[in-house]
């Protein structure tokens, strides 16, 4: 058994809802702007001639294929490799910490199942909440708080880094908007970049955290830590930690990306290089 999953699942679900609501709010905002245009038909008659600018198909005539947006995001990540690396490192550290805590608990669970009293003493000494008769080494409330706080700090760090990245790219954003990019293109580019950073950071962090936890377990409890542990649970913990990293990255970029997407090209152009 992993640490108190139910709390984490609720928490993750909340994060998911927040991001969904934000996306919904944003797209409904776009739709509103699209619908609230009562003069549409009128203009066509006033001008006296059918204008190519107006028409129902306009929305489909400005496009950015997914493959192309992926290509552009990969390219911007590569060009700004160092900056992306720093943002990704924030994630790696946070995810590694979370992965470490969870895998350590998995190891403790495995040991606990042996029922060895010597092991119980060690576990208690290291700080696990082991009551007689329990089969799971639940991490303490303090541990959960520390994990939650570390994730929170990580999100704030990402928001900060991404806001900086957006500011740095004002001119670029303004330019592509002048070339006809829709708000959603800009949003998509930033979300894609963050998604890739999240994936990379999440996986690296999970691997790092998992390795450290396993080595730490080996040193602390001896070889039985590895033989008793349920590797399925370890995999699950690491997978979830990587997923959390990915989500954190997306949550962190949401606000900066919306700022970037909604920027008027002229504001963006006014910024001095």
């Amino acid at each position: 058994m992993a640490p108190d999953w139910s709390t984490w699942e609720t928490w993750l679900a909340e994060v998911g809802t927040v991001s969904r609501v934000a996306t919904l709010w944003y797209s409904s905002h776009l739709t509103q702007r699209r619908i609230a245009n009562p003069v549409r038909e009128e203009i066509q008659t006033v001008s006296g001639q059918p204008s190519p600018i107006k028409g129902p198909d306009i929305a489909r005539q400005v496009v950015l294929p997914f493959r192309k947006s992926l290509e552009i995001s990969v390219k911007s990540l590569r060009v700004r490799f160092f900056r992306s690396l720093i943002t990704t490192m924030t994630l790696v550290l946070a995810v590694a910490f979370v992965g470490f805590v969870w895998v350590s608990t998995d190891l403790a669970d495995g040991l606990l199942r042996t029922g060895d009293s010597g092991v119980l003493q060690i576990l208690e000494r290291v700080g696990y909440d082991v009551r007689p008769g329990t089969t799971a080494a639940g991490s303490s409330a303090k541990d959960r708080w520390i994990v939650a706080l570390s994730l929170l700090v990580c999100v704030v760090g990402i928001v900060n880094a991404q806001l900086m990245a957006v500011t740095e790219r004002f001119r670029e954003i303004g330019t592509i908007k002048c070339l006809g990019a829709l708000d959603s293109f800009v949003l998509r580019l930033f979300l894609l970049e963050a998604g890739m950073q999240g994936l990379a950071g999440g996986i690296m962090g999970a691997v790092l955290g998992g390795l450290v936890a396993l080595v730490n377990g080996l040193l602390r409890y001896g070889f039985s830590a590895w033989t008793e542990v349920s590797w399925g649970a370890v995999g699950r913990s690491l997978g979830l930690a990587a997923l959390v990293g990915c989500l954190l990255s997306l949550v962190g970029v949401l606000y900066p990306a919306i700022v970037a997407a909604r920027m008027q090209p002229v504001e963006a152009m006014r910024v001095e290089e």
């Binding site: 702007r33 699209r34 245009n37 203009i43 600018i53 306009i58 929305a59 908007k177 708000d183 090209p265």
Partner: peptide
């Protein structure tokens, strides 16, 4: 009078 899409198309 153009909406976001039409303005993008124009640009």
């Amino acid at each position: 009078q153009l909406d976001a899409y039409e303005l993008a198309w124009l640009r």
